[in-house]
Design a protein around this nucleic acid. Structure first.
Length: 712
DNA sequence: AATATCCGTATTTTT
DNA sequence: TACGGATATT
């Protein structure tokens, strides 16, 4: 039974897809069909009789996994796509979560743990930081975000704290003792509160996989483990994978050392380079034919990497000739760049390339701020990936905090957040209330047997012996209590009865809790008046809450919903610039990091100036400069047919508060010299496009001149 | 004693 | 812009 889709693979791809047992490393250059190879391999395994639920497919985003499995399903055809839905697919973190819910007992972990995102982790660090009084005094102490970064680096790279600080955070060297104390506290509190952070998920999985007996059970679940983007895995991930494969030879890793761009997350290219040593007998397949880009685009991209310090072994080639060189456009300034990008986007749209097949890529989330305004002004619909996420908005976090309390009443940070919404309750009162709810003596640890008729102890305490709060907060506190009780299906003594349960079930004193969407709706009913007081422009934010309710409608399990929101948040902020016309088509705006693995017909890379690419923050050491080079490489290799790189000559930003109001930029260091010969050079401000004359640039120039007169 | 408010300052990339 | 510290206010 020869599968017809095997014929569509080139020899190297087919070699990887049909590889038998044993470790397999696929070194796949950009655009060489690595996803296709993975998809076909999954399909092939299932076709050969491997039960889908015994396949583990680890990817960088959940979207990637879902798309791959859908494609594999289509190849297999027939009923339910060969059962690809049963394949374990997702990110390392989501998989860890799933695994830990099953094996929590073996680790002494309560199965109803909640998961903190990095923002929550930073908040907890910040809280401890101020409690320990480390923020006081004239000296600046490491910020809460930095604290999380230090901790995360230490954990994921498996480095000593002192080493992590010395190498990656040298400016915090004097703070090391304080940092250590904070991390100790932080860990203790997470455990008390039955909460895991992102790093815990990996660490716990690693411990689980290495545990004497249960480890083997866990590993035995899978006949085949496939890992995408292996160049961006970190030491913990590599270690837990090895544990999962002890005595079980079937592992396939796919990656490209030239596209390693996540070292800030402790990813190390050593993992892919050392794979054959970690897995003796590894069969290595290299994919070198690029199907994505035209030859000139590929040549320009390759020329970037020719200057890299390390030599990469692949020799990428393309058989897609084209007369169109990539274009390097010099712009006067950022407004000029915006105009130029818009003009080019619209020109390609006229030619028949829909907006969805075009993307604007940039180094940092805020690099697209001006462009977003301009796109809005011109009514060009867009979607932004990788910027501020929906779930990072304060009001969405509030809603999630409510749900997390219901899910895990020991989750102190969620209580802390929720309580402070009430007037008259700040950090002090919030802490006091939480202590009462926890049973005042902190000695009482979270016990599994606290589970009782669906009501766990801190919530039960809230329902049975409501703690006292400042007068200003009383009314809303009572309402909060009622809302939470309603969500748990509990009737409070002496209060009005809960509204009838939605599905006509009888509402008793401890009836079935309402459905998840009903709970979300109930919480929003409580929250709306509160939040109208607390936040500015409530109307815009109100739409987000409605959106959240819509998402909740697709879920039955609250636990699942809450976890998905933190582990796999909805992409892209709700289109703020979405005019009434319900256009399907939209331009993609994305950070380069989020663009990994994607491709578009037309790619616009903006801000190709030194200080942007490479980022100022990254040029401290040579490794940083090298990684930024790969970042530019990743950006350029996303393009199929047209590649535009833009470089604004001047920036008017006040760079870091004090000092000059504008600066002249240098072209990105990666684009000078021989690389330039692979580009067609243009000037936006002398371009004879029939677009309106570039007025903004000239005004900007006058302003810059004025600023110089005004300057010191 | 704790909360509310104001103001200066520092800004990457993401699970 | 949002965070964190300092000051004003309840």
């Amino acid at each position: 039974m020869p599968a017809p889709w095997l014929d569509e693979l080139n020899p190297a791809q087919r070699e990887a897809v049909t590889h038998g047992d044993g470790p397999l490393l696929v070194v796949a250059g950009a655009g060489t069909g690595k996803t296709k190879t993975l998809v076909c391999r999954v399909a092939r395994l299932i076709e050969q009789g491997v039960p889908p639920q015994r396949i583990l497919l680890l990817t960088f985003t959940r979207r990637a996994a879902a798309e791959m499995l859908a494609r594999a399903g289509r190849l297999l055809g027939g009923r339910s796509g060969g059962g690809t839905a049963k394949v374990w697919g997702g990110t390392f973190h989501a998989t860890a979560n799933r695994m830990l819910r099953i094996y929590s007992q073996a680790l002494g972990l309560r199965p109803d743990f909640t998961v903190m995102d990095q923002g929550d982790a930073a908040d907890l660090m910040g809280l401890i930081r101020s409690e320990l009084g480390l923020a006081r005094g004239k000296r600046r102490f490491a910020q809460k975000r930095t604290l999380v970064n230090i901790y995360s680096r230490m954990v994921n790279a498996q480095e000593k704290l002192a080493d992590a600080i010395r190498v990656h955070f040298p400016w915090c060297a004097d703070d090391i003792d304080g940092v250590r104390r904070i991390i100790e506290q932080y860990t203790r509190r997470k455990r008390e509160q039955n909460v895991l952070d992102y790093d815990d998920l990996l660490l716990m999985w690693n411990v689980l996989a290495n545990a004497p007996e249960v480890g083997a059970t866990v590993a035995d679940r899978f006949d085949h483990v496939l890992v995408d983007e292996y160049q961006d895995t970190n030491p913990v991930q590599a270690e837990l994978l090895r544990a999962m494969r002890v005595g079980r030879p079937n592992i396939m890793a796919v990656g490209d050392d030239a596209q390693s761009i996540y070292s800030f997350r402790a990813a190390t290219v050593r993992n892919i380079l050392d794979f054959p040593q970690h897995y003796p007998g590894t069969h290595v397949v290299t994919l070198e034919q690029n199907y994505r880009s035209t030859r000139p685009i590929l040549e320009a991209s390759n020329s970037i990497m020719e200057q890299a310090r390390e030599r990469y072994t692949k020799d990428l080639w393309s058989d897609r000739p084209s007369d169109q060189l990539p274009v390097l456009t010099t712009c006067l300034d950022e407004p000029n760049q915006c105009n130029e990008v818009c003009a080019k986007v619209l020109a390609h749209l006229e030619e028949g390339i829909p907006l969805q097949r075009q993307a604007v890529l940039f180094r940092a989330g805020h690099h697209s701020d001006q462009l977003e305004v301009e796109l809005g002004r011109r009514n060009i619909p867009f979607r932004k990936y990788g910027g501020l996420k929906f779930v990072e908005a304060a009001h969405v976090k509030d809603m999630i905090a409510f749900l997390r309390i219901l899910e895990n009443p020991y989750d102190g940070m969620s209580w802390f957040r929720v309580l402070q919404l009430l007037p008259g309750i700040g950090p002090g009162n919030a802490r006091r209330v939480i202590e009462v709810l926890r049973g005042d003596c902190a000695a009482e640890p979270a016990q599994p047997d606290a589970l009782d008729q669906g009501v766990v102890s801190p919530l039960r305490r809230l329902f049975e012996q409501s703690p006292s709060v400042p007068p200003a907060a009383r009314k809303l506190f009572a309402e909060l209590r009622q809302a939470l009780a309603d969500c748990m299906g509990v009737t409070l003594d002496g209060e009005e009865r809960t509204p009838p349960a939605p599905e006509g079930e009888p509402s008793s004193s401890s009836g079935a809790p309402p459905s998840l969407p009903a709970q979300v709706e109930r919480l929003r009913r409580f929250y709306e008046p509160v939040f109208t007081e607390v936040y500015e422009n409530p109307t815009i934010r109100l739409r987000d809450l409605e959106q959240l309710e819509q998402v909740a409608a697709g879920y039955r399990s609250r636990a699942r919903f809450v976890t998905d929101l933190t582990l796999d948040p909805p992409e892209a902020t709700s289109d703020l610039a979405q005019p009434p016309h319900l256009e399907e088509d939209f331009l993609v705006l994305s950070t380069i990091h989020s663009a990994k693995g994607c491709e578009w017909d037309v790619v616009h890379v903006i801000h190709a100036a030194d200080g942007m690419i490479p980022s100022d923050m990254a040029v401290r050491d040579e490794a940083g400069v090298e990684e930024e080079r790969r970042l530019l490489y990743v950006a350029m290799t996303r393009a199929r047919d047209w590649l535009y790189v833009y470089f604004p000559l001047r920036y008017y930003h006040k760079r870091f508060a004090l000092g000059d109001a504008h600066g002249y930029a240098q072209l990105s260091r990666y684009l000078t010299g021989s690389v330039g010969t692979h580009f067609e050079r243009r000037s936006a401000y002398r371009d004879e496009t029939d677009d309106r004359p570039v007025g903004t640039g000239s005004v900007g120039e006058v302003d810059a001149w004025l600023n110089r007169l005004l300057g010191p």
